[in-house]
Amino acid sequence: MKTEDLVALLAAGDITPPGPAAGRLYATACGRGGLIAILLMLTFLKFRPDLLQALWLPMFWVKIGFAAALAAVGLFAVLRLSRPGARLTWLPLALALPLLAIWALAAISLANALPEEHSALFFGKTWMVCPLLIALLSIPVFRMVFQVMREMAPTRPALAGSAAGLLSGAVATLVYCLHCPEMGAPFVGFWYLLGILIPTTVGAIVGNKTLKW
């Protein structure tokens, strides 16, 4: 087929682009996946028993803010990486801000605590399950975000996949905050982050394999 014939073929018929805008598709994916994650959490993990009192504690909202900030960065990165040629210069800074903030809080809380309390602040009571549970809760959002991304045009598939993983991990962390009783900033800055990094890493691998177009 000659190139001019291909051009004629592509330009014929209904050429308006298919489907709703990317932002809406990703938001829907996060919403639906997040809802499934909430149902999973309610079925297998339950709310933390003191959830209503915890709502009045600043640290609860620090955890929510940390996860929400990473989810926002993840969503913007996912949107940008879905479009060929979009700029990403702000991404490292946007990613660094929530991390530096939680690490600063962690440093302050460790500095103010007695040495014998350090281990409790860092390990809490649930460090062994926390990253794994966050990774498991991220699966629904992960799958749905990838489904949308396959319809887009990521020119850097590994990076795009890891952004999708970051987004799903951060949404899962938001949900996990409703269950997790830990309130130490060092705990959040390490074990929560580790939980988010699991889907982020898996996303890079899956993205590299499946986001071809």
């Binding site: 087929m1 190139t3 291909l6 051009v7 592509l10 682009p17 298919p18 489907g19 990317a22 879905s82 479009r83 060929p84 040629g85 979009a86 887009m152 045009a153 020119t155 177009w213």
Partner: peptide, 29 residues
């Protein structure tokens, strides 16, 4: 490759953001 790129540009035309330079989008594809 010209044909492949044209097909890709057509199939992915919904990923073009009017706020973005067209040349950057096309060149990246």
């Amino acid at each position: 490759l010209v044909q492949e790129a044209l097909l890709a540009i057509h199939n992915q035309r919904h990923t073009y953001d009017p706020g973005q330079p067209l040349s950057a989008w096309v060149q990246a594809i």
